[in-house]
Write a protein that binds this DNA or RNA. Structure first.
Length: 884
RNA sequence: GGGAGCAUAGCUCAGUCGGUUCAGAGCGUCUGCCUUACAAGCAGAGGGUCGGCGGUUCGAAUCCGUCUGCUCCCACCA
């Protein structure tokens, strides 16, 4: 191996990824082992890799690699989502660039273009994931519009329809009068817009449709919709309008009579307290209308113009009509006043047209029973949400669920399997052939061409909610096509899901519903919610801001392992991620540290005749214990999905314990060999460390693992075992922590007094200091340590304390007595204050009476230690004063 | 407007059951070092009124109330 002082990831990464693929290491088949399954949150097929994907897939890959090394049959199923809205938008935009309008194409022509686009771009993001080291089972790659996946979706629709949970209903949609399509809520941008608040007079009717002299004032921003009014609504508690109850009023200008209704939706304090109810043109009004059985009068056509129903201003654009009607109202004496008003108005993301709420027929799935099951799944703990703070959100969603509108006015997606007869009736069947059969039962002589399939496609989530099932078997139980596939029974339920909390309802909850419904089992045991990746200023990463680095550039610059580390370092569970390239640098530096530690060890010459020195034996003993302790900690963190904590434990173990302490201990003097026993132990440790590192840094660990010892072709660290937690002696480890502190103190004194590390010094330690660490002190601090009954009260040197041990570093001729005296006096003052606080506590009878014995005993020990320290400080100070 | 969450060092975060010399970690900062693995490094140091106020308790970063500031989700008010 080349031993450059810098680790070069680009040379290494492609080599090992190709090796893994060639040996089919990522592929899983059912066998006797325990399965560990993850399904990828399928990225949009049009997507390109962004930092959110990097976060999500790094976590997925860490979990899957860890499980694989734990001996489980790990299977990570990759794939992409057809994302109807996003993809259709992209295809429409591309066609526009080519000079083709979507409206000029037939459905079939458009879909041909869309599939071409998918074939061209659809795999890009999955190829990018490979650069990150993702160990997906690529043989199992799925796409939500694969023919068999589509079949599953269609069958699911038919299944719920037959169960009576899918129905067709009328609903208010966001209508884009320029694009001539409904758009989803996500595609509506609300902007505060300067408009007017029109106060109109609605005269009370005499009962025969004639004006009386009484009127009420209704405030509205949309006077052009008064012709669609179905009622005027007041709050039942509103004293001001008590007299109005049961009366009827006349719509201005057209003088149609409408009832006064009462509904608590109306706020007494807002506007005039009178709300005109226009069910066809406002979402809330529609709901009020439903509650009060009001007629729906639709006066606006698909282009946003008034239609015949409007009676007046027919054919005028809604905004032109607004201006004209203002004048007409004024002339009729029915306009009280006009105020300036700012209110949020929805605009179409695509055409910037003002969205018109419009009623249209949509398909719905009843959610009550499904949501109840899915809530229960989480409440009873069958699926665990991590962190559990998302429990509240989840519960809120499940308890306030609305029926799911599953139809979309798009072409790219699974077309709704409903066929309409000429008479308006319809049949729901999985195929056109079956639809014809079914239709013939209604109309015996009907022909195929008499049937027309519903134009809408299904919401993309209606396919993704099946994902954990359909990737293994596209025929769900209870559905046609179910094969009782061995893959499904082996891999389902999956183990963990890693995803963002923004889709907890859209995706996670619905997958639980589908799992409960079709499998009788939740689709995963744990759901780990990542945060949203933001830049270091806390802004969401977005193309518009240009604040999102291209992950592939980062990988090229720092290496995939470094990018993974950079991502994981700042990703505590459930918190948003503040991404900063500096963290990737830290990851790269860690790679380099590992690389150089390896260079050091591989450069040692071994002398088989050498016996291990005392320091080497001690170091091996200590590191064995320390390693086991950290393994336990890392395992604990993994089990709690505290991945960044697990990484930090590994990082510190390698950098501090291993490099700064262990290797420095056993490192032979320049040109000297090392004994074989210690060398073999060191290589063994390195092997364990690499295996510990592998899930987070797959490439460098594989590279070094192969060089560390002879490996056969086809061997891989991927299938080596995770280091097993072994027994360890906490007291031994702790005594080395004390020794480290002592070493730090000596080094600090050397720096303060400008004494070279090469200058050997005497160190005297008072009390029952653990002798096992003396060689360690000796080598790392370059001192000759000596444990004694009492420290010299005089003599040149520096005293310091490590926990309860007092130490004296001999510094003949190198001491500044005045400075030492000052330091000792400061320390004495601190100790006296500390003692006083402890004694105050102990002097409080309430404390000694109420606090547990253990706590009181601890305080008494603090008191005794402190008294002892004060005594020797006083001795020291006296001695210094006498000398001076 | 409804719901949820957060506030600890310059930054990002741990802090389990209220009690161990508990106020921590990583990064950054400062100081000294190119010491034969690593300057992408080594050694050392400094840094916090645990958002404010009040309460419970022998004891509060931790529990309760309240205020302030921020974030997210839902609805976006005629």
């Amino acid at each position: 191996m080349e031993l450059s002082t810098k680790y070069n990831p680009s040379e290494v990464e492609d080599k090992w990824y190709a090796y893994w693929l060639k040996n089919n290491f990522f592929h899983s088949e059912p066998d006797g082992r325990e399965p560990y399954t993850i399904v990828i949150p399928p990225p949009n097929v049009t997507g390109i890799l962004h930092m959110g994907h990097v976060l999500n897939n790094t976590l997925n890959d860490v979990l899957i690699r860890k499980a694989r090394m734990d001996g489980k049959n790990a299977c990570w199923v990759p794939g992409t989502d057809h994302a109807s809205i996003a993809t259709e938008n992209k295809v429409v935009a591309k066609l526009k660039d080519m000079g083709i309008e979507k409206s000029s194409l037939s459905r079939e022509e458009f879909l041909k273009y869309a599939w071409e686009w998918k074939e061209e771009h659809g795999n890009k993001i999955l190829l990018q994931l490979r650069k990150l080291g993702a160990s997906c089972d690529w043989d199992r790659t799925k796409f939500t519009m694969d023919p068999d996946m589509t079949e599953a979706v269609i069958n699911t629709f038919v299944y719920f329809y037959r169960k009576g949970l899918i129905y067709r209903g009328v609903r208010m949609v966001n209508w884009d009068p320029v694009g001539l399509t409904a758009v989803s809520d996500e595609e509506v941008i609300h902007k505060d817009t300067q408009s007017k608040f029109y106060h109109l007079r609605y005269y009370v009717s005499d009962g025969n449709g004639n004006k009386t002299d009484k009127y009420i004032i209704v405030a509205t921003t949309r006077p052009e919709t008064i012709m669609a009014d179905a009622a005027v609504c007041i709050n039942p508690e509103d004293e001001r309008y008590r007299w109005l109850k049961g009366k009827k009023v006349l719509i201005p200008l057209i003088h149609r009579e409408i009832p006064i209704i009462e509904d608590s939706y109306v706020e007494i304090g807002f506007g005039t307290g009178c709300l005109k109810v226009t069910p066809a043109h406002d979402v809330h009004d529609y709901e009020i209308g439903m509650r009060h059985s009001l007629p729906v009068i639709d006066i606006i056509d698909e282009h946003g113009r008034l239609n015949e129903q409007a009676v007046i201003l027919v054919g005028e654009d809604r905004f032109v009509a607004r201006k004209k009607i203002q004048k007409m109202l004024d002339e009729a004496g029915e306009l009280e006043k006009v105020e300036d008003y700012t209110s949020p108005v929805g605009y179409s993301e695509r055409t910037n047209a003002v969205i018109e709420p419009r009623l249209s027929a949509q398909w719905f799935l009843k959610m009550d029973s499904l949501a109840a099951m899915a809530l229960d799944s989480v409440v009873k703990g069958a699926t665990r949400l991590i962190p559990d703070k998302y429990m509240a959100t989840y519960r809120h969603w499940m308890e306030n669920v609305h029926d799911w509108c599953i139809s979309r006015q798009l072409w790219w997606g699974q077309r709704i399997p409903a066929w309409y007869l000429p008479d308006g009736r319809f049949v729901v069947e999985p195929t056109a052939e079956k639809a014809l059969e079914a239709a013939r039962k209604l109309v015996p002589d009907i022909k195929a061409e008499d049937l027309s399939q519903d134009e809408d496609v299904l919401d993309t989530w209606f396919s993704s909610w099946l994902w954990p099932i359909s990737v293994f078997d596209t025929g769900m139980p209870g559905n046609p096509g179910h094969k009782a596939d061995k893959d499904l029974s082996y891999y389902y339920p999956t183990s963990d899901l890693v995803t963002g909390p923004d889709i907890i309802f859209f995706w996670v909850a619905r997958m639980i519903m589908a799992g409960d419904e079709f499998m009788g089992k939740e689709p995963f045991r744990n759901v780990y919610f990542t945060g949203i990746v933001r830049d270091k200023l806390g802004r969401k990463m977005s193309k518009q801001l240009g604040n999102s680095p291209d992950p592939l550039d980062l990988i090229a610059k720092y290496g995939a392992d470094a990018v993974r580390i950079g991502m994981l370092l700042c990703s505590s569970a459930g918190n948003d991620i503040f991404f900063d390239e500096a963290q990737v640098e830290q990851g790269r530096n860690f790679c380099n540290k590992i690389w150089n530690a390896y260079r050091l060890v591989k450069g040692w010459k071994v002398d088989e005749s050498l016996q291990p020195s005392e320091i080497n034996s001690v170091a091996v003993k200590w590191f064995t214990n320390r390693f086991n302790q950290v393994v336990e900690n890392v395992e604990d963190n993994y089990s709690k999905f505290r991945i960044s904590d697990a990484l930090m434990a590994i990082y510190k173990l390698f950098w501090d314990d291993w490099c700064s302490w262990y290797l420095e201990c056993v490192k032979p003097a320049f040109g000297q060999p090392i004994d074989k026993v210690t060398y073999d132990a060191t290589l063994g440790f390195f092997d364990s460390l690499l295996r510990m590192i592998h899930p987070v840094m797959p490439f460098i660990s594989e590279e070094l693992w192969h060089d560390l010892a002879p490996r056969e072709e086809g061997e891989t660290i991927m299938y080596a075992k995770s280091p097993a937690a072994g027994a360890y002696d906490s007291a031994l480890i702790d005594s080395f922590e004390i020794a480290k502190e002592a070493v730090n103190n000596v080094r600090g004194i050397r720096q303060q007094k400008n004494i070279s590390p090469k200058n050997g010094l005497d160190l005297q330690i008072k009390g029952d200091y653990p002798a096992v660490t003396l060689p360690f002190l000796s080598k790392l601090a370059n001192v000759t340590p000596q444990v004694c009954e009492s420290l010299p009260a005089s003599g040149s040197g520096a005293t310091f304390m490590v926990r309860t041990y007092e130490m004296f570093l001999g510094l003949s001729g190198l001491v500044d007595t005045a400075a030492d005296l000052k330091k000792a006096e400061e320390e004495l003052e601190y100790q006296r204050k500390f003692l006083a606080s402890v004694q105050k506590k102990l002097g409080n009878p309430q404390f000694t009476a109420h606090a547990p014995e253990k706590v009181v005993a601890m305080e008494r020990k603090k008191e005794a230690d402190s008294l002892s320290k004060i005594q020797s400080l006083e001795n020291r100070i006296n001695a210094l004063k006498n000398n001076a």
